[in-house]
Amino acid sequence: MTSLRRFPARLHGRAGHTMPATRGLVCAAPALACAPSAAWAHTGRPIGPHDLWGAWSLEPAVVAALVASAALYVVGTRRLWAKAGAGRGVRRWEAACFAAGWTTLALALVSPLHALGGALFSAHMAQHEVLMAVSAPLLVLGRPVVPFVWALPRRSLGRVARAMKAPAVRSAWRALSNPAAAWMLHAAALWAWHAPALYGLAVRSEWAHAAQHASFLGTGLLFWWALFRGRGGRMGYGAAVLYVFGMGVQGGALGALLTLARAPLYAHHARTTQAWGLTPLEDQQLAGLIMWVPASISYLVAGLWLFTAWLREAERRTLRREAIRAPQPAAGGA
């Protein structure tokens, strides 16, 4: 860490040492990418099977935000590694996670899946699940703060840092990044946007749709951030297992509701699914199942990963302590 002396506090790997608000801002960057995208919602004629592969959604704002976040990450990582050595500050696997998260995010937002979501509720659901349960955790694992900070010019960095040190910003971040709060926000976003009225709004209005995606991704990032990089660090991973489990169960419950509903709930898809050989009810069942089964598997994997890290942390600490204590026998308890 000596070579990182420029920003020792901010770049320290452990959570809880970095300046929290900066972290929040930069981590939210991909989420903000969703906000200003005009012509985003699934409007116009629903897409049919024949023109699917041409239907890339190259929306300038989305593409710009995606490119910008990738550029920041790459530039920052190169600078950091040039200074500290490759794999330091941001580890290689973390960079790989960011790359994977970025790729899935880009595919979800740009590929024909997005256009298909206008026709099929199930495709729309698949897109949302990629945002929330695949891209968001991978992006958080990629530790984007560190390279983003390194990529900023020094002067603006100082300004940003000052702004973020404001007590109001700091306490707001503290409140939001509490795992319980992040859990509630994420779950609330999920349920709220699946209320038929709000869902209808999202497919009618481009801005509402952008807000929908931004809130899914944003609360998702917040949720995974609170778990992976939360206040307790790895010691908090035990509780994180329960949060992930709870998230999986409540998502599964909503998925089950959609799967087992006896009538189609979303008016928008009443006439858009036939071209794909599905009735609206079947489309909705498929959407529910996507939310229920594959999404739950992703939560399961995350839960087991967190738990393993928790055990490893316990092991590491115990071995370290015993190595220290070894020379002094009869070190009893209380």
Partner: peptide, 13 residues
């Protein structure tokens, strides 16, 4: 241990 937790997790689905 991971199997136990995995079983508990999947058991609810």
């Amino acid at each position: 241990v991971l199997s136990l937790i995995g079983t508990g997790f999947i058991g609810f689905g």
